[in-house]
Structures are given as structure tokens and as C-alpha cells.
Computed example of a mutant assay.
Amino acid sequence: MKKRDDNIEPYDEQKVRDGIIRAVKKRPVVDAQVTELVDTIEADLQTRDERIVTSSLIGGLVFENLRELAKVAYVRFVSVYKSCSDPEDFSGVLDGVLTTNDVAYPKTTTRQQQVTDTQRALRSAQSTSPV
């Protein structure tokens, strides 16, 4: 795997798993779902022709799959992965999550509650670290 600083190191499944576990902390996600997500990412990597893949590709696969699994975990992971440090940095991530038709909020949940829930997730994300 090629890192952002151009160093090459072996793929580490445990690092990927640990990053996902940090993102899904206190979310209704079980270990079997984390394992399935890691397996999905590894299967995708194995189908590629490249012998060396970038850490950016792996991170992108993680957050694509997290988005389907748990929206809050997705926001946490992306905010750390993309080094969001200001509220403005989060706006694109939040807009993407809040305006997507597949956001799984109950019909009785107000837009303000959705925003509050997402802001709470972002505060939590600031205490996590990237994969």
C-alpha cells in the first residue's frame, strides 16, 4: 500500500478494522458487520489489477461502505480521514448525508433533530483518529 507520503508498506487488515471500529463506536453495528465490511474491502482490492494500491483508495472504499452501513459512522470516518478541523469543513459531508434520499430517519424526525444528531456525531468524530 502506498501512503500519502509515498512510503510503501504492507496492507494491514487490523488498521482498517480498527479505523472502522472507532467510527462505529456506540452505534448499532455488530462485529459481524465490521468483519463483512473489511471482507468486502479486501475482496474489492483483490479484484484490482494494481499490485500496489494507495491508502486513499482504501480509505475511499471504507467510507463508501460505511455510508451504507451507518451514516453517523460515515460522517465520523470522513471527517477524520479528510482532516476536517472547522465546522465549515464538515458542510460538504453533512450536506451529502442530510440531502440523500436514503437517509434512514423516521418520518417524525424533524430536520432540526437530524442536524442536531449529525452535529453530535461530528463532535464525537473529533476525538477519533484516521485509519
Rank of each mutant, 00 (worst) to 15 (best):
T108L: 01
T40P: 01
P87E: 10
V75K: 00
P28D: 15
V30R: 08
D89H: 11
I52S: 10
V97D: 06
E88F: 09
D89G: 12
L98D: 09
V93T: 15
E42L: 05
T108Y: 02
F77G: 00
E36W: 08
L122H: 03
L57T: 10
K25S: 12
C84G: 14
K26G: 01
Q126P: 00
D86E: 13
G19K: 11
I41T: 04
E50N: 13
S83I: 04
R51C: 01
A23C: 04
E42V: 12
T40K: 09
P87C: 09
D117T: 09
D6I: 01
D95N: 11
P87R: 12
E64I: 03
E64G: 08
D39N: 15
E42C: 05
S56R: 13
L61N: 04
L122T: 02
V16Y: 01
K25G: 00
S56K: 13
T99N: 15
V29P: 03
Y105H: 05
A32P: 00
R67G: 07
Q113L: 05
S55R: 11
I21E: 15
V75S: 05
V34G: 05
Q113M: 08
K25Q: 10
P106S: 06
G19H: 06
A23I: 08
R111V: 05
E64S: 11
N101K: 08
D44V: 06
D89I: 07
T110V: 09
S129M: 07
I41W: 06
A70E: 15
D44Y: 13
V30W: 02
F77L: 14
R67D: 02
I20L: 12
Q46W: 03
Q119E: 07
E9Y: 01
T109I: 02
D95Y: 13
Y11S: 06
A73V: 07
V29L: 03
Q46L: 08
D6P: 00
V30N: 09
V38F: 13
